Simulated assay, not measured.
Amino acid sequence: MKKLLTDFRLIFGLVFAHILMNFTFQDKAVFWYIFSASLLFLISYSILNEELNDEASFGSYLLYGVGSGLVLYAIFWTGYHLIDLLNLPWMKHITKLYGRYSPSMLWHYIVLMLIIIPGEEIFWRGFVQKRILKYTNMPTGIIVSAILYASVHLYSPHWILAFAALIDGLFWGWLYTWKRSMPLLIVSHLIFDLLLFIILPFK
């Protein structure tokens, strides 16, 4: 674990991710501009400092990518309806979250698919998690990486976004260590977001 704390490329990347995400969540009016620019920077930093895995065939990453995206959406769908059924006070947070961060213009959807989704996976799983796993065992590496991924979402005024990111991070972190394929992960994230924001949103 001491070696982890002396991995200055990892520490530098995490510090910059926090700085960028802090700016990203400050103003709703420029959220999509800052978020896109932040992920472009983090993609570049990741590619310069870590190799990306792609050990799955085209058919495999499509099959597992689509399937896992559907599974994760089903988990969130179940959670959402349990919150509704139990009449928990979290429903208003989910509604506000959709209102604040859902894509609403064509270019939002384009950058979501081409920059934001690949960028989050490349940086948080392909760079952060992969470097952490050099110093820890697999369960610890996945959990620590997911917590770090969730931590940058705490800059949002809606705490439930960080909780959702923690669930996402655990799921995609496990998937990446299992299949070792970045394209598979991006497909999974894409299917999940398409369902969440376009096809079957929770609103």
Rank of each mutant, 00 (worst) to 15 (best):
L114H: 02
F12C: 07
D7M: 02
Y101T: 03
G99Q: 14
D84I: 09
I47C: 04
T6K: 09
S68Y: 09
A164W: 04
Y176N: 05
W32A: 02
Q26A: 04
L194H: 03
F171D: 07
Q26Y: 10
I19Y: 14
S156T: 04
R125T: 10
H153V: 12
S36E: 06
T6A: 08
L4A: 07
H108M: 11
I147K: 04
S60K: 14
I75G: 07
F31T: 01
F127C: 13
M182A: 04
W90K: 02
R100P: 03
I142M: 11
F16T: 02
P139W: 09
D84V: 08
F25L: 01
I47S: 03
L62A: 04
I147C: 04
L40R: 01
A162K: 07
F192K: 02
L170I: 15
I34H: 05
I116L: 15
G169K: 12
L97E: 14
L10D: 11
P118K: 04
L86T: 07
F41M: 11
L148M: 10
W124K: 11
I115Y: 01
P118Y: 04
L70E: 07
A146R: 09
P139M: 08
I122V: 15
H153F: 09
L10N: 09
H153D: 08
G67A: 13
Y135F: 08
Y109I: 01
E50M: 03
F171H: 03
F31Q: 09
W172M: 14
P118C: 06
I110Q: 05
D7Q: 10
L48T: 01
W90D: 03
L133Q: 13
N137Y: 02
G67P: 10
I19T: 06
R131W: 00
I117G: 05
A150F: 03
T177E: 15
T6L: 07
Y135V: 02
I19C: 04
P183M: 07
W124E: 05
R100K: 11
G69F: 04
N137P: 02
L175W: 03
S104G: 13
N53V: 01
N53Y: 12
I147A: 11
M21Y: 14
K92N: 11
D168E: 08
S188Y: 04
L148E: 10
F171C: 07
I110W: 00
S46N: 06
R9C: 06
S102W: 08
T177D: 12
P118D: 09
F12G: 10
H81G: 02
F35M: 12
V111Q: 11
G79E: 12
F123R: 06
